[in-house]
Simulated scan of single mutants.
Amino acid sequence: MNGINLNNRHFLTPSEAAKVLSVSRSTVYRLISYGEIPAVNIRKAKRIPVKAVLEILDGLQNP
């Protein structure tokens, strides 16, 4: 998936999520702020659960 190995990963950076979803990093941050993509803060860094990204992809493939 766009060069990102999702095996044995629990979280992605916003940049990695953007690559997997084929959108810009800014779009990922916007979707986080709108509550469309869940994210956790680890200190000052945002991390996105891989499961959430896979659910988005599944929803795009199976509307």
Rank of each mutant, 00 (worst) to 15 (best):
I48L: 11
R43L: 11
R30T: 13
D58P: 00
V40A: 11
I37G: 00
E36L: 12
I42K: 03
P38S: 10
I37M: 07
I32Q: 01
K46L: 10
S24W: 02
R25P: 05
V50K: 00
V23M: 08
I56E: 03
K44C: 10
Y29G: 02
S33A: 08
I48W: 05
I56D: 02
R47S: 03
L54C: 07
G59S: 14
I42T: 11
R30K: 14
E36K: 14
K44T: 11
I32W: 04
V50A: 04
N41C: 10
R25K: 11
L54E: 11
P49E: 04
V23I: 14
A39H: 07
L54W: 04
S24R: 06
V50H: 00
P49A: 02
K51W: 06
S22Y: 04
K46W: 05
R30N: 12
I56A: 02
V40M: 10
E36T: 05
S22P: 00
N41I: 11
R43F: 11
D58V: 09
A39Y: 05
V53A: 06
A39E: 03
K44R: 15
K44E: 12
V23P: 05
I48N: 06
N41G: 09
R43E: 15
Y29N: 08
S22W: 01
V28C: 00
R43C: 10
A39L: 01
I32N: 08
A45S: 14
S33G: 02
S24N: 07
L54S: 07
E55C: 09
I56M: 07
N41R: 15
D58F: 09
L31P: 00
A45N: 15
I37H: 00
I37C: 00
I37T: 04
I56C: 07
L54Q: 12
Y29I: 13
E36A: 13
N41Y: 15
I56W: 06
K44Q: 12
R47N: 02
V28H: 00
S22H: 11
G35I: 12
P38V: 01
V23D: 02
P49T: 07
V28Q: 04
K51Y: 08
S22G: 05
G59Y: 12
R25W: 06
V28S: 02
A52F: 03
E55N: 14
S24D: 07
V28E: 01
L54G: 01
E55K: 15
S24E: 04
S26D: 12
K51E: 15
K46F: 05
V50W: 02
V40E: 14
I32K: 03
T27V: 09
V23S: 03
R30Q: 14
